[in-house]
């Protein structure tokens, strides 16, 4: 039996002896390993504070609350920014929307609707609102899929 085999055997016997709580003294090599096993079972020196779990619970609640407030603020801010953007862009976009109206009577006749009915729909307001909502949804979606620190 070589040295490694001997050491492995002493280690195994020491583990068994510790499990069985047998009296020491039969083999000094095994006893040395038993002392090592006992030392290895000693708790690590410093410990976490006794109220660590409580502090973690409080921290998690604080972070959740902060996250809700931050999300609400970001949503409001983004909505305002999109609306302002549309307001600023309106003078430039309005002529384009006006050109679109030219094709609407054709659509009326295509769907068999009375002439001009679609043309009277407030398209600017609808498209502007849809753009604002879409913008906010996109931002929200981007925020959700942004890379999070994974464990």
């Amino acid at each position: 039996m070589n040295n490694i085999d001997k050491e492995a055997r002493w280690q195994a016997l020491a583990e068994q002896a510790e499990r069985d709580h047998t009296a020491p003294g039969n083999d000094s090599q095994v006893d040395r390993y038993r002392l090592i096993l006992r030392a290895l079972r000693q708790p690590v020196g410093p410990q976490l504070a006794p109220d660590f779990a409580q502090a973690m619970q409080a921290e998690v609640l604080r972070q959740e609350h902060r996250s809700v407030v931050e999300d609400a603020l970001v949503t409001v801010l983004m909505t305002v920014m999109v609306l302002i953007g549309l307001y600023v862009a309106y003078p430039y976009v309005a002529p384009l929307l006006g050109q679109m109206r030219g094709s609407l009577p054709l659509a009326d006749s295509l769907f068999g609707i009375a002439d001009g009915a679609l043309a009277n729909v407030p398209w600017r307001a609808i498209i502007g609102s849809a753009a604002a909502i879409g913008g906010v949804m996109l931002i929200d979606r981007y925020a959700d899929s942004s890379p999070r620190l994974q464990a």
Binding site: E7, I36, L40
Partner: peptide
């Protein structure tokens, strides 16, 4: 195995 062996040598 190696860790325990090393500790025994230290001991």
């Amino acid at each position: 195995f190696r860790a325990r062996q090393r500790l025994k040598q230290q001991l």
